[in-house]
Design a protein around this nucleic acid. Sequence first.
RNA 1: GAGGGCGUAGCUCAGUCGGUAGAGCAACGGACUUUUAAUCCGUAGGUCCUGGGUUCGAAUCCCAGCGCCCUCACCA
Length: 500
Amino acid sequence: MSAETTDRLEAARLEKLHKIEALGIDPWGQRFDDHVAIRDAREKCPTEKGVVGAEIRVAGRVMLRNDKGKLKFMHIQDWTGRIQIMLSKSEFTDEQWELINCIDLGDIIGVDGHLKVTNTGESTVGATQVTFLTKSLAQPPEKFHGAKDIEMLLRQRYVDLIYNDGVLERMLKRGKIINSIRSTLRDRNFVEAETPVLHAIAGGAAARPFITHHNTLDMQLYLRIALELHLKRLMVGGVERVYEIGRVFRNEGVDSTHNPEFTMIELYQAYGNYETMMDLTEAIFTNAIRATDQEMVLPWGEKEIDFTPPFQRAKYGDLFKEHAGCDMHDAAGVMEAAKRFHVDTKGKAHDLIVNDIFEEAVESKLIGPVFVIDYPASMCPLTKRKTSDPTVAERFELFIDGLELANAYTELNDPRLQEELFLTQLEGQKEEDSMAKMDHDFVRALKVGMPPAGGLGIGIDRLVMLITNSHSIRDVIYFPLLRHEVRNAAGEVEEDSSET
RNA sequence: GAGGGCGUAGCUCAGUCGGUAGAGCAACGGACUUUUAAUCCGUAGGUCCUGGGUUCGAAUCCCAGCGCCCUCACCA
């Protein structure tokens, strides 16, 4: 990066800024009331040439400029769309025209005028007044090709949002989806809670946590990896229908479906079970799809996913038999299948091997949406066992094209069994890979009595990916994690040579 | 963490066999009152990611580092 070139381009803009100031105008703008959304302005625009439409006020960023001397065209953009502005010298005083000549690409202006269509049929605001609202000192990307350097776009997401079609729209859809989830739950009398992010024990899921430290209390803390155990404590406390939409943190790899911090919703419903949660999952998904003005069949890359409820329900054991070719209880068959799917069996408990084979052989085959139900109990230390068969846990995971979208249980509320399961590590499973981490306070809470309940967790980022047909989690997170840029004393970006 | 790819002007991209860097847009100066990525004339703009090496000579070849992307592993 050349600081000199940047300075040269910035200097040209600063010169215009000084000209604006010399005209007695604030180049950083002031309150600007009563403008209409550009989308609404376009709708009000007459369609016949020569017809003078409504008086209107719009505001936005200058994206394109055709300067024909005494007649100028500009395109301005707000968060609803773009519209052309026509500026005719005959409409303005000399001073105002001088201001108009100081407008650069990227500046933010307000425009009063009347709606019309030009000779070429373009919806246009014939400007009668221009209000300068903000000077842009930075050089915008190429006007036709836009910016394509993925690294720059991630580091300067604001540039991505302004100059690349669909980026802002997609992120606004994320907001609509989250609003829809809240609305679905509000209709069912759920209340929202905020529980601690700093945990003494990083429980409720199997993942490596981020570790931090509280200075004055001199204690080690973890950033939460799940919302589960605090929300269940609230169930004990009588908050009968509770949810939290919150960031969780997992100190794991980064790829197209994983970001170290991501957003989950977890919800708990007293007196429900995992079947209640399946119905609720369907409601949350279908309402969210409607909230983005789409039908139930969504494009997903080359595929289409049909979200019309009810979603398919398939038993874990049946899927295992179908794709792994043997009964999951058949020890010899499972060992043979492990070989076929290159699953390491050394020192591992039978159910752990079964689970590894399941992940290898089955998950990618699940296009769905499909609820995989009834997991081996040993894999589910927080889940209630089936009364009819204690080796089976009342758990489901929702899979769509091999992606795990949701995870739900009939919640285990037996404190003695919970304590026992916290103490039981499956053979061959590392502690950090296990959900079973002793949490005495949680057991104490269960002793007070938690009602039978259904609980559900949904990965919000992945849900947004599916609904917006985005195949990278970075496309649905405003600021995904990147390595640091390092700046030298002059403020220029340098390569990071430090070891951390 | 492993393997592969990429890194050239503010942006989008060329750059042949190794012979010391080009275009378009943007910027700057000029012409133009219905353009659509406007057009036309002119000007300026470079740490070819960084550091070594090979060579008479490196954007180009080699090595190392940094960043990003892809695949795999871990994970949701």
